[in-house]
């Protein structure tokens, strides 16, 4: 039962990383300037790498003899537990950077806390990923500030991205009874503390960027329970294409 809860917990982390890494991969070859094309791909690579480690751990916890690819590629849509935020389309560069910034600002304190987890494999993944994530947050925060305090156009685009994505941010802190079980065992941190930390980062960066925090707190949730947006089906169609079209083959 506890393994089941931990399995689900790790799967959520893995799915977030995979789907966001998949989205960022779409930028490769289309970035606003070569240097930033390379930077976005680096973030994507870090996320795919994290996903592999997390799926490996999830597979071990599940104990059904699966490997990371079977978990990543061969589930139905409602079995993916990523937040809606990471599956949102790339949009313009502002949308991509803000989506990444909101995510990084959540992931960094989460990984920092998970480094203390008594689940040693999880702590080890967190320790490796925390360095990558700290860099991502630095890079995205600086871009949010550059766009917010750049030109009128970049300010408008950044604000529009914030206003749009804000509805998906509360789900980052979604908790259910599985989380509570794990928290009671002190294996994972409470997301309330993470949320306070996240809000602090967001406020600081948006303030420096001269951007406003939306006042409409209407939320969109469902990803953590497997209810996704329309975009998810298309993401999986691409992601799973080869595995579905050519089942049981090695690549």
């Amino acid at each position: 039962m506890q393994d089941q809860a931990l399995f689900e917990y790790v799967l959520r982390l893995a799915d977030d990383s995979l789907i966001l890494g998949q989205r960022l991969g779409e930028w490769c070859g289309h970035g606003p300037i070569l240097e930033e094309d390379i930077a976005l791909t680096n973030i994507s690579l870090d996320l795919i790498g994290q996903a592999i480690s997390l799926y490996d751990l999830a597979a071990e916890l599940e104990g059904a003899g699966k490997n990371h690819d079977q978990l990543a590629y061969l589930r139905f849509e409602n079995e993916y537990k990523n937040v809606l935020l990471v599956e949102q389309p790339n949009g313009d560069f502002a949308m991509t950077i803000l989506r990444q910034f909101f995510f990084d600002a959540f992931r960094l304190p989460l990984y920092e806390a998970l480094m203390q987890s008594p689940v040693s494999q999880l702590a080890a993944i967190a320790a490796k990923s925390v360095k990558e994530t700290r860099y991502h947050l630095k890079h995205t925060s600086e871009w949010v500030i550059r766009m917010g305090d750049g030109t009128d156009e970049s300010h408008e685009r950044a604000q529009a991205a914030i206003d749009h994505l804000w509805r998906y941010t509360s789900e980052l802190f979604y908790e259910d009874n599985k989380d509570e079980q794990l928290q009671a065992l002190e294996q994972v941190p409470s997301l309330k503390g993470i949320q306070a930390n996240w809000m602090e980062t967001v406020k600081t960066v948006l303030y420096e960027a001269t951007l406003a925090i939306p006042t409409n707190n209407w939320k969109f949730e469902g990803g953590r329970e497997g209810r996704h947006s329309e975009h998810m089906g298309y993401i999986l169609a691409d992601l799973q294409y080869m595995q579905r079209a050519y089942p049981n083959m090695e690549w």
């Binding site: 991969g25 490769c28 094309d37 790498g49 592999i52 690819d69 990543a72 992601l239 690549w251």
Partner: peptide
């Protein structure tokens, strides 16, 4: 083909190569 790479290792390799 990045989004359609058949497994995670190939996806990472292809990303790194195109990068």
């Amino acid at each position: 083909w990045i989004t359609r790479a058949p497994n995670l290792r190939r996806k990472a390799v292809l990303l790194a190569k195109v990068q």
